[in-house]
Amino acid sequence: MTLEILTADSLADQRHGFFTRKGGASCGIFKGLNCGFGSSDQAHAVTLNRTRVADAIGVDVERLATVHQYHSAEVLTVKGPLGPNRPKADAMVTATPDTALGILTADCAPVLFADAQAGVVGAAHAGWQGALNGVLEATLAAMQALGADPANTTAVIGPCISQAAYEVGPEFMDAFMADDPDNARFFAGGAGDRVQFDLPAYGLHRLRRAGVGEAEWIRHCTYRDADRFYSYRRCVHQKEADYGRLISVIRT
């Protein structure tokens, strides 16, 4: 099956893609393009899936950089192939030619960045913890260190969980209110004491406040569309043993 790759017009000058689960070699609950070695999927299937992604983005698979993500604000500057031992970080930046940066998600927000004039790109894994702790601003700062200008930078949030599907408890909201009382606008009322959090809107707010020239969400919900996307929360609700990881990639 052919890979399905979502793109953003605002990043048209940069080779990139938000890959759906379609077109992969994985089977069972991972059926499709599972690119997560952290899952319990067969390693050879994940390797084949990543090779297909690298081919689609136009680089050797060794030049498709991914990291060990752990919901931090840590940013890695990539200057060449990372090898088999993936460093711990939740974002990457590079100005090295023919280098692709890949972010893995399954409800969290993948964010791709590019300053086409400077030849600098970035990619970030922005779940609620990373976004709250500043991973998006840290990515922009690391891009600046390579010569990028936030005002010339475009940032696009890919498929992630939407507000209608993201119900959380009051203690979750409390963490955001403690950071900034204005964050109340990113929550809507749910059942009982539950509230619904708007992750993509919060990410856009942080990006725009940081001064990016253009920011958008491509408006695809991972939870609602099981045919196209993996979802951690859907996996929990359906009591499945594990879940696949989507990959979003940008290259120089």
Rank of each mutant, 00 (worst) to 15 (best):
A8C: 11
A8Q: 03
D9E: 15
L11D: 06
D13N: 13
H16V: 07
F19S: 02
G28N: 07
I29R: 08
G36T: 02
G36E: 01
S39M: 04
N49R: 07
T51A: 10
R52P: 00
D55S: 11
D55Q: 14
I57E: 01
G58V: 03
G58I: 06
D60W: 05
A65F: 02
T66Q: 11
H68G: 09
E74A: 13
L76H: 12
L82C: 03
P84T: 09
N85V: 12
R86Y: 09
D90A: 07
D90E: 08
D90Y: 06
M92Y: 06
T94P: 07
T96C: 08
P97V: 05
D98P: 02
T99M: 15
T99S: 07
L101A: 04
A106G: 05
P110W: 03
F113S: 04
D115N: 07
Q117W: 07
G119V: 06
V120K: 01
A124L: 05
G134V: 03
V135S: 01
A145T: 11
D149P: 02
N152F: 04
N152M: 10
T153W: 01
T153K: 00
V156Q: 00
G158K: 00
P159K: 04
C160F: 03
C160S: 11
Q163A: 14
A165H: 15
V168N: 11
V168K: 12
M173K: 15
F176N: 03
M177K: 09
A178V: 10
A178F: 09
A178K: 14
D179A: 15
D180C: 10
P181S: 08
N183H: 15
A184W: 14
A184F: 14
F187K: 04
G192K: 12
G192R: 12
R194M: 15
R208E: 15
R209L: 10
G211P: 04
E216D: 10
E216A: 13
W217I: 04
R219N: 13
H220K: 12
Y223R: 07
D225V: 13
D227R: 11
R228Y: 11
R228A: 12
F229E: 03
Y232F: 15
C235W: 04
V236A: 13
K239A: 15
E240T: 13
E240K: 15
D242G: 06
D242M: 08
G244F: 01
I247R: 00
R251N: 07
